[in-house]
C-alpha cells in the first residue's frame, strides 16, 4: 500500500497529554457558554408572556448557568496553571513566558512566515509556536481579569466565602459599574481571540499538514521525518 509508505515519511509525536486536552475542551465549552449567557445577561431577549413573574425564572436560570460555568472555567484555569509545572515539555509554563532570546526570534519568524508570508523558513516548534504561546500568555491574563471582575461582581450576591475573596477588586476599579464594563469589554477579546484561533488552526492544518486540529483530540502530531533531530541539533549549538 503506497499510502502507508507516505505515512512512514512522518513520525508521530505525542504532544498534548490527556489533561491538556481535557483542559482545552472544558475551557472552550465554558467560554462558549459564558459568552452566550453573558451576552443574554447584557441584552436579555424579549421573551414575554402574560403569566405572573412568580411562574417564570428563565433569566434567573441563564444567570445561574453563567455562574456555574464561571466556577468551572476558573478551576479549570487554575488546574492548567498547575499542569504548567508538572506536565510535559510542550505544556511547561516556560513556553508561555518569552524570557529567552530564541523565543522572541521565533515570534518574529512566525510573523514573517505565517502572518506576513514574506519568508519560507520553517518554524522549529512542535508544540505551540512562540507567537501562539505569547498570545496564550495574554489570554491567561485575560482569564485572570475576567475571573477577578466576574467573581468581584458576584461577591455582592453571594454568602459563600470564595467569591468574597474577590470583593476587593470592585472598589479598586471604582464600583460595580466600571467592573461590569471591564468584564463586558474583555468578553469581546475572548470572541476575537476565538475567531483568530480557529482560523489559524485551519490554516496550519492546511499548510503544514501536521494534523494540528486532531492533535487536540488525540494528542498526536505528525512531524516530517528528521525534523525532530534537526531541532535537537540546533538547540545543542
Amino acid at each position: 500500500m503506497k499510502e502507508k509508505k507516505e505515512a512512514e515519511h512522518n513520525e508521530t509525536v505525542y504532544v498534548w497529554q490527556l489533561p491538556v486536552r481535557f483542559y482545552h475542551w472544558i475551557n472552550a465549552l465554558s467560554i462558549l457558554v459564558l459568552c452566550v449567557t453573558g451576552f443574554l445577561i447584557g441584552y436579555p431577549i424579549a421573551l414575554q408572556n402574560s403569566a405572573e413573574a412568580s411562574f417564570g425564572y428563565w433569566f434567573g436560570t441563564v444567570r445561574f448557568i453563567h455562574f456555574v460555568a464561571a466556577f468551572i472555567f476558573f478551576f479549570n484555569f487554575v488546574y492548567r496553571l498547575y499542569w504548567g509545572f508538572v506536565g510535559n515539555k510542550y505544556a511547561k509554563w516556560d513556553n508561555f513566558i518569552p524570557y529567552r532570546k530564541s523565543q522572541w526570534q521565533e515570534v518574529l519568524d512566525v510573523l514573517k512566515v505565517d502572518i506576513l508570508m514574506v519568508s519560507k523558513k520553517p518554524i522549529d516548534s512542535v508544540g505551540h509556536n512562540a507567537l501562539a504561546s505569547l498570545t496564550y500568555f495574554f489570554t491567561f491574563l485575560a482569564f485572570l481579569v475576567q475571573s477577578l471582575t466576574g467573581f468581584g461582581l458576584y461577591a455582592a450576591m453571594s454568602k459563600s466565602f470564595f467569591p468574597k475573596l474577590f470583593a476587593w477588586i470592585v472598589p479598586i476599579l471604582g464600583g460595580d459599574f466600571n467592573t461590569r464594563m471591564i468584564h463586558h469589554i474583555f468578553m469581546w477579546l475572548f470572541i476575537v481571540f476565538a475567531i483568530i484561533h480557529i482560523y489559524l488552526v485551519f490554516y496550519h492544518d492546511y499548510v503544514e499538514r501536521r494534523g494540528v486540529t486532531s492533535s487536540m483530540i488525540g494528542g498526536w502530531k505528525f512531524i516530517e521525518k528528521g525534523h525532530m533531530e534537526e531541532v535537537k541539533k540546533k538547540v545543542k549549538v
Binding site: 447584557g42 502572518i115 508570508m117 519560507k120 464594563m181 463586558h184 469589554i185 468578553m187 469581546w188 470572541i191 476575537v192 475567531i195 483568530i196 482560523y199 490554516y203 492546511y206 499548510v207
Partner: peptide, 30 residues
C-alpha cells in the same frame, strides 16, 4: 463597548479572509 467589539470582530474576519486568499496564492507551491 459592543459597537467597538462588533467592529473589531468585523475587522478580524476581513483580515482572516484576506489572509486566507493570500495563503492560497503565496503558499500554492507548498
Amino acid at each position: 463597548a459592543d459597537k467597538v467589539g462588533i467592529g473589531l470582530g468585523a475587522v478580524t474576519v476581513a483580515g482572516i479572509a484576506a489572509h486566507a486568499v493570500v495563503t492560497n496564492i503565496r503558499k500554492r507551491k507548498e
